[in-house]
Every structure is written in C-alpha cells, then in structure tokens.
Amino acid sequence: MQRFEYHRAADTAAAIALAARAPEPHYLGGGTNLVDLMRENIERPRTIIDVTALSSAIEARPDGGILIGAGAKNTAVAEHRAIRERFPMLARAILAGASAQIRNMATVGGNLLQRTRCYYFYDDAAHCNKRKPGTGCDAVEGFNRIHAILGASPSCVATHPSDMCVALAALDAIVHVEGPGGRRSLPFGAFHRLPGDRPDLETALGPAELITAVELPAGAAGLRSTYRKVRDRASYAFALVSVAAALRIEDGKLAEVRLALGGVAHKPWRAATAEAALRGKPAGADAFRAAAEAELAAARPLSGNAFKIELAKRTIAATLSELAGARP
C-alpha cells in the first residue's frame, strides 16, 4: 500500500474542497473495497478523505419515497422497516451481498463505486485496460466464466459486482452528487458507464464529485418485488447472474414490470427490452421466457460464459414466475 495523507471530513463542503485541491484524492467510506484495492496497489491515492462522518440518515418520505444518506451502512438500509416494506427487492439484494461483517462496514455511496472482481484486474502481472489503459485485456481469451455477456467491448468484459445496485437500477433510483461545480442528480441508469474504449472510466462522476445520497422515488414503492442471486456457492460469493424484479398485475395483466440483471455487464443492467415486451401482457411462464429471450438477444458470449445467457433467461423466468405466482 502506498503512503497517503488521511483527512476526516467534517462536512460535505470541506470534503469537496479538499478533494479539489489535494494530490490524487480518494474518498473513503467503509473501506471494504478500497482498502483491499490499495493493499493490492491497484488504487494508489495520495490523499484519503474519510467521508463516513457525513450523512447516514435514512428518511422515509410520506409520498412513499426514501432518501438514503450516502454514509448509511448497508445493514442499516436492509434492516430499515420502510425499505423492507416498500422496496423489499432492495433489502434482499443488499442481504444477498457480501457477508454481515462487510454489510456492517460498507456504505451506500461506496457500494455504487465498487470495482470489478475480474481476476485480471486484480493481478498486477496481467494485462488490463481498466487498470492500465491501453495494455490489453487478458480476460477476453482467458478465464472469463464470470464475465459480461451484455454491453461489453473488446477493451473490457468485466462485470459490476454490486447486488444493491441491481435493485437500485430496477427502482429508478436517483443519485445525488455534489462537487466543486455544485449539486446535481443523476438517474441511476446514467450513473455507471459501459466500458467502450475507456473501461477505466466507470461512472459519470466528475473530479472531486461526491455521492451525497441515493433517492428511491415513490414510483416503485409497494410493488411486489424480489431479488434472486445465482452464484457458485450458497452464500458469500459474487453473482454469476442475479435478477431484481418487481411487478404489479391488474386483471391478470402485467400493469407494471421492473427488471434488472446483475453479473452480466459492466454496469447493473436494466432489462428495458424485457420490460417493454411484458408490459400489458398476461402474466405467465411463456411470456416471461419470451421476454427473457428478447432481452438476451443482444447477448454475446465469450469462450467461457455462454452458459450465462441461458442462466439469465431461466433466472428471469423463474423469478418473474415466483413473483406472479405468489400473487393471491
């Protein structure tokens, strides 16, 4: 780990001001990903700005929406009664991630900024365009069983590792950020980037910009929803494929469907094609399978991960069927 200067920010403005002038700054939340990456010499900040003292409040609004401070711990979000009742998929997604110990440390803001678990990204001896732009990608023809099937580029086939973010994508969350240029809000789908030819750029955050809160709009509140994660062991592993799904059935028809996938792309993948295919259709296994087929039509397998296409289709269909069938 490279040496750094440590600062504990007393407020958001001070944090941003420091980040704007200090050499090679990095905000620090719970450290569950950053400290590991620093120890591996993959992240090499010279200035650490600890933002864990900033807002961790969770504010359940009367309209059904919820505002979550970026410093809120994963556990605090998952156990919050309003979140469990209004957005169960989010609670379940968080609980499917990592371990209880890590959820007790990790912040919401940090979760959005998790970096990929690609083996070659983590290994300094490997070629990786994300770690060192322009050096190539060892995953494209290497071990890529855990890699992307959607939205990848020849430069990078890594996936985003977060579970929470898959639910946030499905819920149309809003990311509130603040930087030297002031405050702005980003729709969740615009927060993470696809790799293109700059896989080192992962989010829409500008220099010194800090995530201050994540907002769950009222729109999806109260929908029947869940999160299903498929992985290589029963717990404590990253997703091969995960599905965040929510729906509302009226008169036997799908009045509302929200669907997002994890483990398949460089960013949490909102399955807009499948949603469009299902909206207004009668709920049923055939429709679910057809929608999954439509969503995965764009999938491109690598040498070792073709199974993910079928797995994603089946997991989508199984998750939607479970949600629809559970309806009285």
């Binding site: 083996y119 983590y122 290994d123 490997a126 290497g142 071990f143 029963a234 717990s235 592993a237």
Partner: peptide, 20 residues
C-alpha cells in the same frame, strides 16, 4: 497462457461456507 494462478484469493477460490 501464462502459467499463472488467476484466482489467488479466498473470494474467488470457493471453499464451502456454512450455508453449503
């Protein structure tokens, strides 16, 4: 290709956990 072990971590070498 390289003779290198690529999952040299407990996170990516999956020993059974309690739930397994």
């Amino acid at each position: 290709r390289s003779g290198r072990i690529v999952n040299a971590t407990m996170a990516e070498y999956h020993v059974p956990v309690h739930l397994d």
